[in-house]
Simulated scan of single mutants.
Amino acid sequence: MPDARLKQWRVRIDAALARALPDPSASPQRLHAAMQHAVLLGGKRMRPLLVYASGTLFGASETSLDGPSVAVELIHAYSLVHDDLPAMDDDALRRGQPTVHVAFDEATAVLAGDALQSLAFEIVADTPVADAVRVQLLRTLANASGVSGMCGGQALDIDATGTKPTLEQLERLHALKTGALIRAAVRMGALCGGASPDELQRLDRYASALGLAFQVRDDILDIEGDSATLGKTAGKDAAQDKATFPSLIGLDASRMRLDSLASTMFDALQPFGERASVLTALARMTIERSY
């Protein structure tokens, strides 16, 4: 059952993303084509799937969840476009395809990222929910995207390159850079479904562990994976002297940390019982994924 729903939602989100993006044949054509390239060439769609999974847990309609799902994926896509730029990670491969600045040019990549970010908030503003809920959705996404979330985490990541941070500092970095948008995805879905403060707190605990687990697994795959399977450049972290969990605590300890985070996730979902089966499945996918 969880696998069937995830497959259905992947089809739904891909269709919704295609509808949301501007027509690549319309002017400015190069910018529109770059936006399509950034969003529609694959991806795990983890964040929109979390929106649907947490929202339907509380009875939210898929129609009300479409907007937040699209928005969170657009923010994620914009962050990858900018992260791949020469001024950041300078990567040439993303999702098995040339990165946006390679396929187009650097100026177009910057503008494409900016446009995707703006479009995300426009879509949330049109979400068919109560006004008070819409404001909460906008605040949640803005907080996760800015200096208190993803952008702040990226700044910490830049500062940490070539250094050896403490484990606490590394976990804070990734709680912002990777975890903030994952927590926002889970919270936005739950807000659409009218979750209680206690339920939101429990889901925040799940999502915080999920975000960190995603990064720990990513760091392990950067060592153990290959570029063809990963769809991005393998070994990039070591080549750029990035602070990672394996470089700081070793591979075995990183795997143990992943097991601990899995326990935290399952414990947080336990009171929801079978209703949280899709969130449980997404947790398992995160800790077991090979790309």
Results as ranks from 00 to 15, higher is better:
284 R>G: 04
223 I>A: 07
50 L>C: 13
223 I>E: 14
208 S>Q: 11
242 K>A: 10
151 C>I: 12
79 S>K: 05
18 A>H: 14
20 A>S: 14
30 R>F: 03
280 T>V: 10
172 R>N: 10
214 F>W: 07
226 D>R: 01
26 A>P: 02
278 V>K: 13
117 Q>I: 04
26 A>L: 02
201 Q>F: 07
141 L>W: 14
68 P>T: 00
21 L>K: 09
82 H>F: 05
225 G>I: 00
203 L>Q: 07
139 R>D: 15
137 L>N: 12
270 Q>D: 15
135 V>H: 14
167 L>V: 05
145 S>P: 09
42 G>Q: 02
121 F>P: 11
75 I>E: 09
278 V>T: 15
196 S>L: 11
103 A>H: 00
5 R>W: 14
191 L>S: 09
239 A>Q: 05
27 S>R: 04
46 M>F: 15
137 L>T: 06
153 G>W: 13
276 A>R: 06
273 G>K: 12
282 L>M: 12
70 V>A: 08
90 D>Q: 03
172 R>F: 12
32 H>D: 08
224 E>I: 02
152 G>R: 08
63 T>W: 01
236 K>H: 05
89 D>G: 03
181 L>G: 02
249 I>A: 04
98 P>T: 03
78 Y>T: 03
63 T>Q: 13
260 S>P: 03
189 G>P: 15
246 P>R: 02
80 L>C: 02
45 R>P: 08
283 A>F: 04
29 Q>K: 08
247 S>H: 08
125 A>E: 14
21 L>G: 08
148 S>F: 04
212 L>A: 10
281 A>P: 03
13 I>K: 10
264 T>S: 10
33 A>Y: 01
277 S>D: 15
116 L>F: 09
107 A>V: 01
234 A>D: 08
265 M>R: 05
274 E>P: 05
70 V>W: 09
228 A>P: 00
265 M>T: 05
147 V>K: 11
217 R>M: 06
120 A>N: 09
42 G>E: 03
237 D>R: 00
28 P>H: 00
80 L>D: 03
58 F>N: 06
129 V>K: 00
116 L>P: 11
32 H>F: 13
161 T>Q: 15
47 R>W: 08
177 K>Y: 12
275 R>S: 14
215 Q>R: 11
272 F>Q: 11
272 F>N: 11
287 I>K: 02
262 A>T: 09
34 A>T: 00
272 F>K: 10
44 K>T: 06
15 A>T: 08
157 D>F: 06
75 I>K: 06
265 M>N: 04
85 L>R: 01
204 D>S: 12
241 D>W: 00
27 S>W: 01
264 T>K: 07
145 S>C: 12
175 A>H: 06
32 H>N: 15
279 L>V: 04
48 P>L: 13
220 I>T: 00
70 V>R: 09
123 I>T: 12
261 L>G: 14
176 L>Q: 11
26 A>K: 01
9 W>M: 12
268 A>E: 13
155 A>Y: 02
216 V>R: 04
